[in-house]
Amino acid sequence: MTVPKKVSEYIDFAPPADVIENHTGIKLVLDIPGANTEGLSGNVEEGELKLTADTNIIRCDKNVRYKRTFQISDQVDVENVKARLENGVLELTLPKHEHAKVHKVKIEG
């Protein structure tokens, strides 16, 4: 049995991502098998969303690490980004700022 062990070195993989848009914002869905919430980190800096997820999977004597960067428009409400990790799939919800949402105006008459 391979005992999951922490190795100081990492091998980076860029996980596949789906991007879904709806009226309220953007949804990012990434496949990051083997990652759990402890090893997951994300931050927004200078309009870039950087995601990193450590795993215990060993590849070429190194720990597999997922890394991906997305450019974000300033219309995204960075303060209210939500993340959910389930079964190796990370789902990020990036809401639009209230002022960036499309409001439909009904014409009376």
Binding site: V19, D31, Q71
Partner: peptide, 17 residues
């Protein structure tokens, strides 16, 4: 947001072991 995605894709193939 995603303008750079296609460029990024050329740099690496999105995958995992």
């Amino acid at each position: 947001l995603f303008d750079d995605l296609s460029e990024g894709l050329n740099r690496f193939r999105a995958n995992y072991p």
